[in-house]
Simulated assay, not measured.
Amino acid sequence: MVSYSSRVAFLGLGLFTGAATAQNYWFSFGDSYTQTGFLTNLTLPSPGNPFGNPAYPGYTATGGANWLDFDTTTYNNSLVLTYNYAYGGATIDSGLVAPFEPTVLSVTDQVNEFLGTAGSPSEPVETTAWTSENSLFSIWIGINDLGNSYYLSDNRTSFDTTLLNAEFALVQKLYDVGARNFLFLNVPPTDRSPLMLAQSTEAQEMLKANILDFNSQLAEFIDEFKASNSGVTTFLWDANAAFTTILDDPTAYGFIDAVSYGTDVGYFWINTLHTTSPANVYWAEGVADVLSGSIW
Rank of each mutant, 00 (worst) to 15 (best):
S6G: 14
V8H: 04
F10M: 11
F16Q: 03
T17Q: 02
A20G: 08
T21G: 12
A22P: 01
N24I: 15
W26I: 06
F38D: 09
N49D: 05
A55H: 10
Y56I: 06
G58W: 11
G63W: 02
A65S: 04
N66F: 06
N66Q: 03
D71V: 15
N77E: 05
S78P: 01
Y85E: 05
I92Y: 00
A98D: 10
F100S: 03
E101Q: 12
V104I: 15
N112F: 10
V125E: 00
T128V: 14
T128N: 04
T128Y: 01
W130A: 01
W130F: 09
L136M: 10
I141W: 03
I143E: 01
I143L: 04
S153V: 09
S158Y: 12
F159G: 00
D160C: 01
T161W: 04
L163K: 08
F168P: 03
F168V: 00
L174V: 09
Y175E: 04
D176M: 12
N181M: 06
R192V: 00
Q204M: 10
Q204H: 06
Q204G: 07
M206L: 11
K208L: 14
A209S: 07
S216L: 14
Q217K: 07
I222N: 11
D223M: 03
S230A: 07
T233A: 09
A242G: 12
I246M: 15
L247H: 02
D248H: 04
D257Q: 04
G262D: 05
G262E: 00
I270N: 03
N271I: 15
H274M: 00
T275H: 03
S277T: 15
S277C: 10
A279T: 08
V281P: 08
V290Y: 08
